[in-house]
Amino acid sequence: MERLKVNLCGIDIDNPIIPASGTFGFGYEFADIYDINKLGTFSFKGTTKDPRFGNPTPRAAECTAGIINSVGLQNPGVDKVISEELPKLAKVFNKKVMANIGGFSVEEYAYVAEKIAQCEQVGWLEINISCPNVHGGGMAMGADPKMAAAVTSAVRKVTDKPVIIKLSPNVTDIVSIAKACEDSGADGISLINTLLGMRINLKTKKPIIANKMGGFSGPAVFPVALRMVYQVASNVKIPVVGLGGVSRAEDVIEMMLAGATAVQVGAANLIDPCACSDIIDKLPEVMDKYGINKLSDIIGGAL
């Protein structure tokens, strides 16, 4: 459907709906339920240089209209992602995929990016400098404009494919970090990663999450995400991918009006495995209701 098409960093996608990293695995769990080729693309599970088990369990806690997770970048490592996960994905997904990359040093980000960018299936690289659940990397990289710039430059040097930097909301000045990434050669910005949160078990009087704190996502964070997308989109020229609490077609339109070129859907996939498929089906109807002809017309409409 032409009405839903957008161009994300030079690549046309059929619609702006992108399952967010960490909520969609490497796609095939969902391919059992619906044809995932219907998606714009999806961002696969955050991949690091070495295999990681991640954090101790419990890793999940329920919140009002959301979930806290502290998975800690569990993944099989870049070599196995390339040799095992991507070939498996190729059987169920024939579009370009967004490769999500995590790391603990500038060199590690560049190492993984260089390897993964060589995979033909990979359309975009999404560099996660915002994971709240790992130490010595992740969010620490995304909280400082200088570090964000250093990671962006290093990744920029190893690939010509579009590089999207995924930012944390747990910072005082999101705009300065986004601009630092833009100035260092990023092709796009995605935001927001999860908000640092916690829950305490009233019976044990201790934190529910083994790691005590975790990343809060779900519908409750949508207004915060929307505000930050708006702030960043107002101040950078590169495309912004909006995410955070998006669960309905209406949320997608709001995100795009705030300046998002494409929209990621995260926690909703965990509750309703068909969430993204349902949103794509519902978009034309909601667009009609609000007098929207083409989604590409409304990007940044509220700025």
Partner: peptide, 22 residues
């Protein structure tokens, strides 16, 4: 038994280590 996020393998919240891998 473990606290789960999704219940169908997507979120990795209920992982454990086994002799044959995660």
């Amino acid at each position: 038994e473990e606290r789960m996020g999704c219940g169908f393998g997507a979120c990795m919240c209920c992982s454990c280590k086994t002799v044959t891998g995660y």
